[in-house]
Write a protein that binds this DNA or RNA. Structure first.
Length: 548
RNA sequence: UGGCCGAUGGUGUAAUGGUAGCACAACAGGUUCUGGCCCUGUUAGUCAAGGUUCGAGUCCUUGUCGGCCAGCCA
């Protein structure tokens, strides 16, 4: 019954639930774009609170403006929420309530609280006044009720051109809250609705529609972001005048994440300018982008609970997201070995043509994950960064004369580096110690370093895509995206060498490539014939920091 | 120059008039067949000034700074 760490909303809900109120919430996206990590925060709050208090949460498409909405977005939204692991009570559509909303509007007109206004949008803007000056009443403000009723009916009937009239609530043109200066309830819009088709040519505005949607569904807590704080008096006004079920609106701060952008418009710009490959580009903060990047639902939910719920406009460091990601993946990801920048190693004293199978642990954090066999042979690949001719102090890897452990295999010693005429490293000639099979020396001697490897002949060639933060700037607020996008946010590496089992991975499968990071088989392009892995997030690396 | 809302280490948050705590980040160390994980430690905070109170991060006043609002978007 009692939820997790109580934030200010949970405190309110807990108090009212204790007094007998049923907890019914809703998540109300407009189906005109894809969900992103900021929506995930709202989703976790809306669905999470309902769940914690034994209530329910509806998924409602707030489809009151047909110009940019579509069924594709509806499907995308449903898929993303389901993927996050939440179950909605009812799937609702604001468009299903249009008739009822119209009736309520007629009722309000009848009460003398709404009127048909013939001012142009420009004239409405001018007459609304400014932040410091009161507005002027519309010349149509005192139109008789009968005439309003008649005109409103004809608006619906399609007798007037788009934009020629609106239905406005009659509230207070001098209110310091501009939302109360006779807000528009209906506009004439001859645009086919993706569900209602051409049944309507008038559409309700957000302020008029939203409270009604909540009321009709019997919502008790209408949770939304801080932007709607100024709209709450209007939300309350409509419901009070109509004397219908009145949910409580509570606002919280939306999520801002460092080194990325979150608004639909900015995300759209990135897609349209081809600065990313699409809405599901692994660098995008969209749910589909994060999914393709290799995020788990658990990591996202953990992150959302870690950031909390407040009314403070904050900027969350993306390092916190990375932390939650690693925390989750460390426990669940199968380990594998892959070489993203290969250099060949020849073990001179290992018999030519022979192969042996060695046992490797699948996940040291989860014994139940078991072990697997990996092939070892005379020719291997290791990471080129794991070798240096003249290493600096505290370099624990390979260099001439030095011995390291090949993970789950043998100790090897570097005899010499072979270079071509231009000085490029061609291969490393090494020897191995047969007495160290499995990774431990019979004589008990230790090595400082353990490196990962794959057998040259048995490994698969694959593509690995390295991802990094989309923007270099913490808070990219200029529109100059071409210059702001991190040029190294995506690096495509070809000719990587993968452990033999990796090409068979199912698209979306997540691995930890030992010593490198977490990677997933790309959802769109990975295949056994042409393996493609995306780097979700690198492992923490204290060595790299020390070198600076 | 109107109204509403907010302000706690570098970042995100907790403390509901009674010892300012947690997490991330950073730094130092321990452990280790992943320079991962894990463990230990260090640095670092109540926007300001008044007031109420035995006692204020918390309540009051004023100020400062920040967010939102002048769509027939949501």
């Amino acid at each position: 019954m009692v939820g997790q760490a109580g934030d200010f909303i949970r405190d309110i809900v807990a108090a009212e639930a204790a007094a007998g109120k049923v907890v019914r919430t809703r998540f109300p996206p407009e189906p005109n774009g894809y969900l992103h990590i900021g929506h995930a925060k709202a989703i976790c709050i809306d669905f999470g609170i309902a769940e914690e208090f034994g209530g329910s949460c509806n998924l409602r498409m707030d489809d009151t403006n047909p110009s940019k909405e579509s069924m594709d977005y509806v499907e995308g939204i449903k898929r993303d929420i389901a993927w996050l692991g939440f179950k909605w009570d009812k799937l609702c559509f604001a468009s299903d309530y249009f008739e009822q909303m119209y009736d309520y509007a007629v009722k309000l007109v009848g009460m003398g609280l709404a009127y048909v206004c013939e001012l142009s949008s420009e004239d409405v803007r001018v007459s609304r006044g400014t932040l410091t000056e009161a507005g002027r009443g519309s010349p149509f403000r005192d139109r008789p009720v009968q005439e309003n009723l008649e005109l409103f009916k004809r608006m619906r009937g399609g007798e007037f051109p788009d934009g020629s009239m609106t239905l406005r609530a009659k509230i207070d043109m001098a209110s310091p809250n501009l939302n109360l200066r006779d807000p528009v309830m209906y506009r004439i819009l001859r645009v086919g609705h993706y569900r209602a088709k051409d049944k309507w040519c008038i559409y309700p505005s957000y302020d008029w529609a939203h409270g009604l949607e909540d009321s009709i569904e019997g919502i008790t807590f209408s949770l939304c972001d801080l932007d709607f704080e100024n709209h709450r008096p209007l939300y309350d006004w409509f419901l009070d005048k109509l004397e219908i079920h009145h949910p409580r609106q509570i606002e919280f701060a939306r999520l801002n994440l460092s080194h990325t952008v979150m608004s639909k418009r900015k995300l759209m710009t990135l897609v349209e300018k081809r600065l990313v490959s699409g809405w599901d580009d692994p660098r995008m903060p969209t749910i589909c982008g994060l999914r393709r990047r290799g995020f788990s639902p658990g990591a996202i939910r953990r992150f959302c609970s870690t950031i909390g719920v407040t009314k403070f406009n904050s900027l969350t460091d993306c390092a916190l997201l990375d932390h939650c990601l690693r925390e989750d993946l460390n426990k669940t990801a199968t380990r594998a070995m892959a070489i993203i920048d290969p250099v060949k190693v020849v073990i001179e004293n290992y018999p030519e043509g022979s192969t042996e199978m060695l046992e490797a642990v699948n996940n040291p954090e989860d014994p139940a994950a078991g072990t697997r066999k990996i092939p070892f042979s005379r020719e291997l690949y290791i990471e080129s960064g794991d070798f240096m001719d003249s290493p600096p102090p505290k370099f624990f890897r390979l260099s001439p004369g030095r011995e390291v452990r090949l993970r789950y295999a043998y100790f090897i010693k570097c005899l010499r580096a072979v270079r071509d005429d231009s000085g490029n490293l061609v291969e490393l000639r090494c020897s191995y110690d047969p007495e160290t099979r499995g990774g431990n020396a019979a004589d008990g001697r230790k090595v400082k370093g353990t490196i990962h490897w794959v057998s040259a002949a048995h490994s698969a060639v694959g593509e690995v895509r390295l991802y990094d933060r989309l923007f270099l700037e913490e808070k990219p607020d200029s529109e100059d995206y071409e210059r702001l996008v991190n040029p190294e946010s995506e690096k495509i590496l070809l000719g990587c060498r993968l452990e033999p089992s990796l090409p068979q991975a199912k698209p979306g499968a997540v691995f930890q490539f030992e010593r490198l990071g977490y990677f997933c088989a790309d959802l769109k392009t990975h295949s056994p014939e042409k393996p493609v892995f995306n780097r979700t997030v690198p492992l923490r690396e204290s060595w790299a920091k020390n070198r600076k």
